[in-house]
Simulated scan of single mutants.
Amino acid sequence: MIENAQILLIADNQDSSKHLETVLEFLGESITVCNSAAWVKQVEESAFKSSQFCAAIVAQCDKRDSVAVIQELHAWEKGLPFILVGEHSLEKITDSQLLACITAQLPERLNYQPLLDALHKAKLFHEHFNRLRDFDGVRDFTMFRSLVGESDALQKVRYMMGQVASKEVSVLITGESGTGKEVVARNLHLNSNRSDKPFIPINCGAIPRELLESELFGHEKGAFTGAIAARAGRFELADGGTLFLDEIGDMPLSMQVKLLRVLQERSFERV
């Protein structure tokens, strides 16, 4: 965690600023309050380094265009996540890296729990970015060579991949059939610390439900009729590497519950 981490609050409306400040202080956060017109000078006077700000909360700005302020903040500190309060003209933003830094958008009438969740998400984003700050993957988004294309959407995908490639986390990849989810998964594997270990794909929708549990977790000899020998499952085969569960939405709900427990506990037993 960042020592003396600060929340940068940008708000021009005095009532809105005071309300947000009160809520954030109640949550135990340290805050630096600025207005949109003079935030650069006010931050300099605070004596905090840019990397000490773990999140920027930007409320609606009366003195300046809030999007321009967000763009300036992003240029000032690339790893600063944004929590936006109220309406903002985000269609003006074309920078995919900046869009990825917007971790939450909240209504002007704030509720406690959504703000708490947004702060937690922003802090995780900031912590992960700083961990990878010296890792080429954060800034060299072209390292995923087999992802062909230069569109803004694909650049955003590359950026998100660069944030998780070197981390030991479970990754959810969504998209229509045929859009390249397995390509993304293979690229993540090849650019991770697990690249010298197996990449094991499995199509969960193509395996009969009565065989799926054994296929994933393996089974011991005699566990059921026809189990004449012990067999390792896909989780076991992927030990130390990457397991790609394709079409997971087609998996029976009862199996999804068992899978969730494995992902949470990081352990399993053969059938």
Rank of each mutant, 00 (worst) to 15 (best):
A230P: 00
P208G: 10
V271K: 15
S195H: 13
L132S: 09
E29N: 05
L243V: 06
R261S: 05
R64I: 01
E265H: 05
L90R: 11
S66M: 04
D117W: 10
I10D: 02
K121C: 05
L119N: 01
V43T: 08
N193E: 09
I70V: 08
A118S: 11
E215R: 15
L154D: 00
E168S: 11
G249K: 08
A38E: 13
R270W: 05
L237K: 14
T22Y: 02
L154P: 00
R209W: 11
K181T: 12
I228K: 14
I7N: 03
A11T: 15
V85N: 04
L98Q: 10
S214T: 08
E91Q: 12
A68F: 09
F82Q: 11
S89V: 08
F144K: 04
H88T: 00
F125Y: 14
S214F: 11
V257A: 14
E25G: 00
H19K: 14
S146R: 14
E45R: 08
I202E: 14
V85K: 04
S36P: 02
E87W: 13
C61I: 07
R231G: 08
I248L: 12
F217H: 06
Q105L: 09
M160L: 14
F53S: 02
G180N: 06
S50R: 15
E168C: 05
N130E: 11
P201E: 09
L98W: 11
